[in-house]
Structures are given as C-alpha cells and as structure tokens.
Design a binder for these strands. Structure first.
Length: 210
DNA sequence: AGCCAGGCCAAGC
DNA sequence: GCTTGGCATGGC
C-alpha cells in the first residue's frame, strides 16, 4: 500500500471529518491550542466537557486566561484529566503567546513552552494557524506499522512526519483531513486490540502484531 | 470492572 | 539517545 492510497480509502469510507474549530469561528487559534493541550493522552469526550466548562465560564478568552488563577482553571478542566499539569500548561501557553503576533509564532517557539511537545505544536500550527505541518500521533505510528507502511513500531516523530509529508500533496485540506481520518480509523478499528472485521483497509494491511 | 484515551516531562540508564 | 513512571477523569 502507498500512503496516498491509505488517505483515499479512508476519505471514501469515513468522509470528511472537518475537525477544527468546533466552537469559535474567529479565534480558532485559541480554541485549537487549548483543545490540543487538553486532549493530550485523553479521550475527546472528556475534552469536550472541559472545553464547555471553560466556554460557559467565559474563560476561552485570552484576557481571562491570562488573569485567571491556576486553581480556577484546574476546576474547570477537571473532566479532561491530568488537570494539575494541564492547567499549568495552559497558563504557560497563554503567558508566552499573549500579545505576540501570529506571524512570529513558529514551531520552535511553541516547543520552547513547557507542556507543548511535537504533536501539540503541530496540531496548533496546522489546525490553529493553517501552517503545513503534518500531525503525527500514537495512532499514526500504530497504523503505519501494522499496515506495513513503516518497518518498526517505534519511529522517531520527525522521521515519520517527513516521510508522510514527502508522500502527500502540500495541501492544508489534505493534511487536516488525513490526520483526522487516521484518528478515526484508530478509534473505530485499529485499536490496541484491533477490530479487523469491517476495517476499510483490511485488504491492504499486513496485520502486524502490536 | 479493568482497560484505555488525539502526550508531555523528568529521571534513569 | 532510548525507556520508564507519573499524571486523572470518564466511557465502554
């Protein structure tokens, strides 16, 4: 199987995902950034509860978050889990980015913020700032290894990102949809304990263990 | 009712 | 450089 085939099969089976933004049209940068931090190793259902808490409290707002006490944020984001860490990460992010023009925000700047790793940074860049960075996550590695697109399960983030970016068109829509489709496949079929019956790429897969 | 979720950081080798 | 432990809620 080729990478672009995987994309096409997933798009045909699942349709467009249209992931982000969910709530705010005008400040998607903030919504995506907070959502990306909250979803670190966390089910999106739980993230939605936390996001709604923030929105209902009027806290999905740069000024409110900047001034907010960390304890207030902890209480609001509790459903997302790891809330002690994530509240600090959110404060770190808002403090670092507040008042900085979007043109000056790049990958290395985001990575310098404690709590923003490679996947979170690339999610913010791609979905929040429309920059051409492909988002690699645990599902991507698992699916690419099982299907045989890569030969070892533990590949470095940057290596897999480069490999994918060199094999798909440099198009924001494709980048956004492909990552979302990979997550959807991971949720529906390519779980830790795979549900291969009904998987849309079953016929193209090597079914490697783990 | 245990397993798992759209990671990250710090510490240890 | 790679591996491990800690962080936490809620759904299935």
């Amino acid at each position: 199987m080729k990478i672009i085939q995987l994309y096409e099969v997933l798009l045909n089976s699942f349709g467009e995902q249209n992931w982000w933004p969910v709530y705010s049209g005008e400040d998607k940068f903030l919504e995506v950034s907070i959502g990306a931090i909250l979803t670190q190793n966390t089910n999106w259902n739980n993230v939605e509860k936390a996001l709604k808490n923030l929105i209902n409290a009027g806290f999905l707002n740069w000024d409110k978050l900047l001034k907010a006490d960390t304890e207030q944020i902890k209480q609001l984001i509790k459903p997302a889990g790891f809330y002690n860490q994530k509240a600090i990460y959110i404060k770190n992010f808002v403090s670092a980015v507040y008042g900085v023009s979007k043109e000056k925000i790049n990958r290395s700047f985001l990575l310098s913020i404690k709590g923003i790793g490679e996947e979170t940074a690339d999610s913010i860049l791609l979905y929040g700032l429309d920059r051409l960075y492909f988002v690699v996550d645990a599902y991507t590695k698992r699916i690419f290894y099982r299907t045989g697109l890569i030969n070892r399960p533990a590949i470095r983030y940057g290596s897999l990102q480069q490999y994918i970016q060199q094999n798909i068109p440099p198009d924001l829509k494709v980048y956004k949809e492909f990552h979302a489709l990979i997550v959807e496949l991971g949720k529906r079929a390519c779980r830790k304990k795979p549900l291969c019956a009904g998987c849309p790429v079953n016929h193209l897969c090597l079914k490697r263990p783990v």
